[in-house]
Design a protein around this nucleic acid. Structure first.
Lengths: 352, 352
DNA sequence: CCGTTCGCCGGGAGCGCTCTCAGGCTCCCG
DNA sequence: CGGGAGCCTGAGAGCGCTCCCGGCGAACGG
């Protein structure tokens, strides 16, 4: 690929469309038409304008463009997570990555908004209301999250990652679009797998029950174990430490358990540590299943974790696609895209 | 905190400064002055304008503002990393987080640009040239990275995370500003610590030597072990798998080694696994030191890793500060801020 | 050969804001 | 009481772009 000699913009000011037009000997309107695709402009003029653009190193001024079109070509990604998880979970990176891929493929920019504490929501609202972005993607809503109210108030098209607490599970709408993994189905599969292995006292370490993913996984567990002993269920917080604590509690209450289904891999590793400390063999004495198939966690655990995989990056891309599609047609009419639930898959490794 | 009744913007169009001015009975100019701080406007008019803003739910149009001020209030964060690392390393999250904190504290937005392959650099250049952002922060440059050429060409103020390959080590400039940890000093401390423990055959698993952080850590190792046996040095790639491979090679060449200094924690965990597989006790037979004090890696390793901590988040914040300061005063004159090298600290755990 | 249609181009308005500049007012000092 | 200094304010230009609309020429049908 030959290096294009890009003209340096030393003269302080960048060339405007006006300059391009003049150089090409056409009007500003025609130059604009060419820059935006060139439909309805005769070929030789298109050529001339393109040359002028090249020679001057013209790049459109996005602010001017946004001012008149009322589109920014940017999308906000809002991530609200307590410190701990964001650090430890590679989730974050993978989601961002999936979104980034999809957005750049559509020439759309990614503006990242991290929410540290509740006070930040004012800032977020101002930002969204300001028209800096055309739409928003948001993750991991908790039941009392103020975000939905905000996006509705400012009329910002938004797609959520993970089913929000107040949204119906069925593909239905409820005025909100989301992409979620089939948490309940995945949980069912995990538990059935444990049953298939001959396990009978199957415990569950749930996630924080103010998150729908945790609730759905618990529901999946109960779907299969209709008459599960409540003592076999402990609530964790999706961290390894929380998983360890929950495991300790479970062992105390039910020393006879022979399997554990943890609502995520991190908690499973915590559980693993406790089991090992107590001298219980995995999977010999206790079989263990996680959820997520988290990079660097599930596979490198000792023993490697059987777990339920969800396609994080694919889900993230899907979110972006949904949003972009809405923005494309919306342009006025408020079409809410349908939500999508993506399948999960059991990955069998040595822990069961 | 009483909920402010935010007026919904149903009438399609948002109120303009004009509308605010009219409602407040002042000129657009005065309204603008109030919105931008209100200096030089008499108190009662300030009050009136503020009220009008409240009542109408006015939010300035950033595009219009940018068009005239030529400032966007946004900064690009450019991250170029091969797949593997970005997924596995919590680095990414922590850097982003530090930057985000600093930027939002200065009312500046964060536009994320992820580089997947070299073809993306064209896109990046166009974007930066487009004037979407006022400055850029970039990470992990490799020696042949095209980014510096781009930022220079489009005249984009940029601060690098980690010393770029062509930049001098000394606090000096070379026309480029960066923030880096004291990799060399940290490495020296790690190796001296191993010596203090009575170790004599100290190996080093280096990072990829096209990254300055890897080179600097290797240099630090050599600073202390002036006459180190070249056979004691292996090159990894900063991943666990690479660390394992390097460790295997080292054991083959030098079965008598009694300590390993790995250039990051991930490689240290890989090494750990290999050592365990070979039946070598850590730290009994071989002492092990990592680098980074990576979340979820160093502390939760078995045994927990002695490692060199660097303050990722602090460094990231520093980068943002440096850039913002440049942007503040620059506004025309091209002041390049001085680079900063931040200290590291040895964290002693059970692996030595 | 003329009228009409259609395709293509240019003029010009206007998006919402900032900022310069001139003018008006007040206030103080002589 | 007059005049100058200083402080506020408003008018207006203009940032760079898109897009409507009017006009002009070519083409085509009658």
């Amino acid at each position: 690929m030959p290096e294009q000699p890009v003209p340096e913009q030393l003269p302080g000011h960048r060339p405007t469309l006006e300059a391009v037009a003049e150089r090409a000997g056409v009007s500003r309107a025609t130059a604009s038409r060419v820059v935006n695709g060139g439909d309805g402009v005769r070929a030789h003029l298109v050529e001339k304008v393109r040359e002028a653009v090249q020679e001057l190193g013209y790049v459109p001024n996005p602010a001017a463009r946004t001012l008149v079109t009322r589109r920014t070509g940017a999308v906000a990604v809002i991530i609200a997570e307590p410190e701990i998880r964001i650090f430890s979970d590679p989730f974050f990176s993978r989601q961002i990555r999936g979104i980034s891929k999809e957005l750049t493929a559509h020439d759309t920019q990614l503006v990242l908004l991290l929410v540290e504490d509740r006070g930040d929501y004012d800032r977020i609202e101002r930002y969204l209301a300001g028209g800096h972005v055309d739409g928003a993607l948001a993750f991991s809503l908790h039941t009392d999250d103020p975000l939905p109210a905000i996006t509705r108030r400012v009329g910002m098209p938004t797609v959520y990652g993970g089913r929000p607490g107040w949204a119906p599970v069925s593909g239905g709408h409820g005025g909100v679009a989301y992409v979620d993994a089939d948490n309940r189905g995945g949980a069912r599969e995990a538990v059935r797998h444990l049953l298939d292995q001959g396990r009978r006292r199957i415990a569950h370490i749930a996630g924080p029950l103010d998150q729908t993913s945790a609730v759905d996984r618990l529901d999946g567990y109960r779907d299969v174990l209709l008459d599960a002993d409540p003592a076999l269920i402990a609530e964790g917080d999706f961290t390894a430490a929380g998983g360890a604590e929950a495991m300790a509690g479970l062992l105390e209450r039910c020393p006879d358990l022979d399997a554990v289904f943890a609502a995520n891999d991190l908690m499973a590793t915590g559980a693993l540590r406790v089991l090992r400390e107590r001298g219980l063999a995995v999977p010999g004495d206790v079989a263990l299943v996680g959820f997520d198939d988290a990079e660097l966690v599930a596979e490198s655990a000792d023993p490697p974790l059987t777990t339920v995989r969800q396609d994080i990056e694919g889900m993230a891309r899907l979110m972006a696609q949904l949003l972009l599609r809405t923005l494309d047609k919306a342009q006025g009419d408020r079409a809410v895209p349908a939500s999508v639930v993506t399948p999960t898959a059991l990955v069998r490794r040595a822990s069961t």
